[in-house]
């Protein structure tokens, strides 16, 4: 299917305590992209993401999923949640079963598949997340990183079209952070759209195809990473930080060490290559 997976139009949402979390949020979410959602604490990132799986219902505005406006009846919600998965930030709120095997099987069982099919999906999801060896372990004996992997396997086993990650690398060590980001790339290469809320501008700059920046319950800007992080005005306004890599590169350019017409590197290796090239040229 082509076109946008989601069209969000003018969402408004207030929490019962009066907090206006979303104030007219509109955005289109393209299919098969890696999207990073940036924004300070309290910008409404989680509130927005919970609207995408119909957990929260907007006070005003529309969520259009695959070209159809989302109705909040049982059947449409089930249909939506079968296609859009949500990996919660704290794996302990997501993992409800003491057995890893049963945990991962919960989602596919709800899809009404046969037991054989569910078993295949569980095995595949555990294999894809590199967590097959944890199959017989108890959930409460797993490390935080391992729990995170299982919470991703949970959703992968449902074969969704899109997965929402709420700060997937928060409180993970560098090794697990890498592993999770690689995993997200693998998942995306299989044609699954990904949207990830994060505070890590360096990771977002390296990883994302598109960045959404949120401020005060609205989308402040949508664009490719280069464009977002070159917008000094936006960075100032939304209290973002410029990625370290980009900052160094731009300082080098300003100082005249690197020619102005070289495009900015997206990762460390590209920067090193540019520096090598530069040294050779001189």
């Amino acid at each position: 299917m082509s076109g946008n997976i989601f069209e969000i139009q003018d969402l408004h949402f207030n929490y019962p305590d009066g907090t206006a979390a979303l104030q007219g949020l509109s955005v289109s979410i393209e299919r098969n992209k890696k999207i990073a959602l940036l924004g300070s604490n309290g910008a409404g990132k989680s509130t927005f993401l919970l609207h995408l799986i119909g957990i929260l219902k907007p006070d005003k505005g529309k969520v259009i999923f695959n070209g159809q406006e989302l109705k909040y009846d049982r059947a449409s919600l089930i249909n939506l949640r079968n296609k859009v998965g949500y990996v919660f930030q704290d794996p302990d709120t997501q993992l409800f079963s003491a057995s890893v095997w049963q945990e991962v099987s919960f989602g596919p069982m709800n899809l009404g598949l046969t037991n054989e099919e569910v078993e295949n999906r569980v095995i595949k999801a555990l294999l894809d997340t590199g967590a097959s060896h944890l199959k017989d372990r108890a959930t409460h004996f797993l490390s935080y990183g391992q729990k995170k992997l299982i919470s991703i396997a949970d959703i992968l086993a449902m074969n969704p079209d899109m997965i929402i990650f709420d700060e997937p690398t928060a409180s993970l060590d560098p090794k697990y952070t890498h592993r999770i980001l690689d995993l997200l790339n693998d998942i995306n290469e299989r044609g699954i759209s990904i949207i990830m809320a994060t505070h890590d501008v360096d990771k977002a700059y390296q990883w994302a195809d598109i960045i959404f920046v949120m401020k005060d319950g609205r989308i402040a800007k949508v664009g490719p990473p280069e464009e977002i992080f070159n917008d000094e005005h936006l960075i100032e306004n939304t209290s973002l930080e410029k990625p370290l890599l980009l900052k160094i590169f731009q300082e080098l350019q300003l100082g005249g060490y690197i020619s102005q017409n070289i495009t900015a590197p997206r990762n460390v290796n590209q920067l090193i290559k540019i520096l090598h090239q530069n040294a050779v040229n001189q």
Partner: peptide, 16 residues
Amino acid sequence: SLEARGYNGTIKVLEQ
């Protein structure tokens, strides 16, 4: 989080 995975009143899981 259960609702997000299609929970419908009974917890169905696969036994090993």
